[in-house]
Design a protein around this nucleic acid. Structure first.
Lengths: 239, 239
DNA sequence: AGCCTAACGGCACTCAGTGCCGCTAGCAAG
DNA sequence: CTTGCTAGCGGCACTGAGTGCCGTTAGGCT
């Protein structure tokens, strides 16, 4: 270590909204690198701030807590999900819409694989970070549940609240399962197809009743390909 | 405030295992009362320890963290669930067994209603405690998933891991939904019946495939009479 | 009585998180 | 160019959670 000046920016980077996002990303990147290199607990907020060339106090202007820096993009994902729901065709099956919305989470993980893998390694090792991730998942699970409840209530479902909560939990669980499997494999393989198969299981289980009193029974072997399953169920629903 | 001696126990309460449990309960009770009276953040660990007549350092010998004191009995519940699974009849439907096991959570909430209501009020208002509760739920959800996965693998299910995770999430969500509704009503009403109804929805959705190679997917309205369901399913199975 | 162990209390320390204040870069109006 | 004005930053000081260490003491055992 030479005596470091470490005061980089000639122009104030956080002065403009674009600069704010830039510094936010820089802080997050610095934090992840330090966590991966030295461990989470061993890395202090001072270290992160110094690595990003800012003061410790500034870090807390960009993140409420040390562990928030690992889930920096989560708020944006939730916002995108809300938009997706607002723009969704009301005629579509609510569970399918919800599954499509959580696909945004998959996209965001795939968009920054390096971050995703490092974060995955951390959440598996550090208990407090695992809890934080669980809480993060719970947040968008609640968004799912709120959407589903509204749709079920539109359909006159008496148990809309319960069904929505259960379906949202199932969707989130399926999503997490696919995500973890994919991350364990180092981010290789077709995550979209895997997700579609997992969601099919949930969709089949929680498809909302069509019309008022329709009863649909479909019989399938386990070997039935997915598209066949969907086709058969849809066929049965119509007939 | 008079000059308080506040050193109560003539006999060392924590010296014996029975005494340890006693002090643990005393600390938890003191903490909950203080949280309810003054708020969670406003209550320091010093306050809790002083109220229980012990030193601050002792508190951390009984609980790893301040928020752990609110979920003191959680470990015991998880242990009971594991026992329940170990003793369960393998012939029973795994999802039903799992639902019965989470019933233990309901029991523990009903067993100490005062604690449950105060904790509920806290988890609704304090974000960090809500996250802590979510993490707590996730822990027994994992226990459920592990049991279900083993049972599904016994049945030769290829997607045992996924199905187990999804079913566990659904069961936990149903349980939480019933629990929260009950707590919101102040702990009045028949929680067991409500839970049974909620679990019925999950069991219907995730019933394991009967027989060897037949998978039956049924989508039904809640209003469908049972004999009709049976007839339709049998009909579908035959042809 | 004398030891041995387990639990407690207190002290000191690190670090997360917060409030406060002074500073400065940039912008706008004169 | 100068004079405010504002937004963001750095630093300081403080609280409180959580931890390591050590001296002390109660209770059991021989």
């Amino acid at each position: 270590m030479t005596d470091s000046p470490r005061r980089a920016p000639a122009t104030r980077v956080g002065a403009t909204p674009a600069g704010r996002r830039q510094l936010r990303r820089a802080l997050a990147a610095a934090a992840v690198d330090l966590f991966a290199a030295n461990g989470y607990e061993a890395t202090t907020v001072d270290d992160i701030a110094a690595a990003a060339g800012v003061g410790r106090r500034t870090f807390f202007r960009y993140f409420d807590a040390k562990d928030d820096v690992l889930f920096a993009n989560h708020d944006e994902i939730v916002a995108e999900m809300e938009e997706e729901f607002a723009a969704a065709d009301p005629a579509r099956d609510p569970v399918e819409v919800a599954c499509a919305a959580v696909g945004l989470v998959l996209d965001s993980y795939a968009a920054d694989l390096d971050l995703s893998l490092k974060r995955f390694a951390l959440t598996r090792t550090v208990p407090s970070l695992r809890d934080k991730e669980v809480a993060t998942v719970d947040r968008y699970q609640r968004v799912l549940a709120r959407y589903l409840q509204a749709r079920y209530e539109d359909q006159g479902d008496e148990t809309a609240s319960l069904r929505a909560a259960v379906a949202a939990a199932a969707i989130a669980a399926a999503n997490n399962h696919v995500l973890r499997r994919w991350l364990r494999a180092g981010g290789t393989g077709d995550i979209k197809t895997a997700a579609a198969e997992a969601f099919a299981l949930v969709v089949d289980a929680f498809r909302a009743p069509r019309g008022d009193e329709a009863t649909v029974v479909a019989v399938l072997t386990t070997a039935t390909p997915l598209h066949e399953v969907v086709a058969r169920v849809g066929e049965a629903l119509r007939g």
